[in-house]
């Protein structure tokens, strides 16, 4: 791990973002709209006062972070290919994975803006305020969830390098998280056979941990193991994602050096 490179990539992504910040919109629009629609549906069903809505708001925040992460990671490699900066990066002794890691951290960090946006709209449109029962637990959980998203971003970015059609993967991966993470409706509502898919997404555990910390008396089959089980699962999944990313990136670097498709767009 090359901390200096990761920091530099974080800063590069940040500077680039701040130079043209409206580009955040395409990446956050879908999760934002989906959350607002879900809230309309719950309020139409007369559920506005129930904790369901509060969980949906929290879940929407996580989706927002996911959306930004997914699009930015997908685009980050495409951008370098298009821009011709892939080659200069490959020329340096730094591994590509460190550069992408730094950017993923920035992307998730910016995704928090989206989460806040969801919270504000929930307050303005539906009058649903976000109150946090246990802030001391909530914020570490938030950080951990962010970190888990960054690690998925890293793994996805690797897949994006391998394909020209990163747009395809982005499109295909955007929605499963909406459905399977339990963000806007509990995963217990899903057909039993589909639930294992939820368990391999770290954000599922993050959403659960956040809800447990924010809402007193929150209870799902997942939370009944206790919040520390969520933490454990996130740790495990993050480790899996990072190890997988490492191997993917090693393969990518090798592939690129063998086939020379690096510069082609």
């Amino acid at each position: 791990m090359n901390v200096k490179a990761i920091t530099a990539a974080f800063r590069q992504q940040g500077t680039q973002f701040l130079a043209d910040p409206q580009w955040i919109i395409p990446s956050i629009i879908a999760p934002f709209m989906f959350t607002v629609v879900a809230l309309y549906m719950y309020s139409g069903a007369g559920e506005l006062d129930s904790p369901i809505v509060l969980t949906a708001v929290l879940g929407g925040g996580v989706l927002g972070m996911w959306g930004n992460m997914l699009f930015s990671s997908g685009f980050t490699i495409t951008y370098d290919r298009y821009n011709g900066t892939m080659e200069p990066i490959m020329l340096t002794p730094t591994h590509l994975i460190d550069v992408i890691a730094g950017r993923s951290v920035w992307n998730v960090f910016i995704g928090m803006i989206n989460a806040v946006l969801v919270f504000i709209s929930a307050q303005l449109i539906f009058g649903v305020g976000v109150s946090v029962a246990d802030p001391l637990l909530f914020f570490p959980m938030l950080l951990m969830t962010l970190f888990s998203l960054a690690s998925i971003g890293l793994m996805l970015a690797a897949l994006f390098v391998l394909t020209r059609a990163s747009y395809v993967i982005t499109t295909i991966l955007e929605f499963p998280i909406y459905v399977f993470s339990g963000a806007l409706f509990p995963i217990t509502a899903l057909p039993e056979a589909l639930r294992p898919i939820s368990y391999i997404f770290a954000p599922t555990w993050g959403v659960d941990a956040l809800k447990t910390a924010a809402i007193s008396g929150y209870n799902t089959p997942m939370a009944s193991f206790g919040i520390w089980f969520d933490v454990l699962m996130m740790f495990l999944l993050i480790a899996v994602y990072i190890i997988a990313s490492y191997f993917l990136f090693m393969r990518i670097e090798r592939n690129i050096r063998e086939s020379g498709t690096l510069a082609r767009y």
Partner: peptide, 9 residues
């Protein structure tokens, strides 16, 4: 996704 929410709501 919305089918699930509609059902759940």
């Amino acid at each position: 996704f919305f089918y699930m929410i509609a059902g759940y709501a």
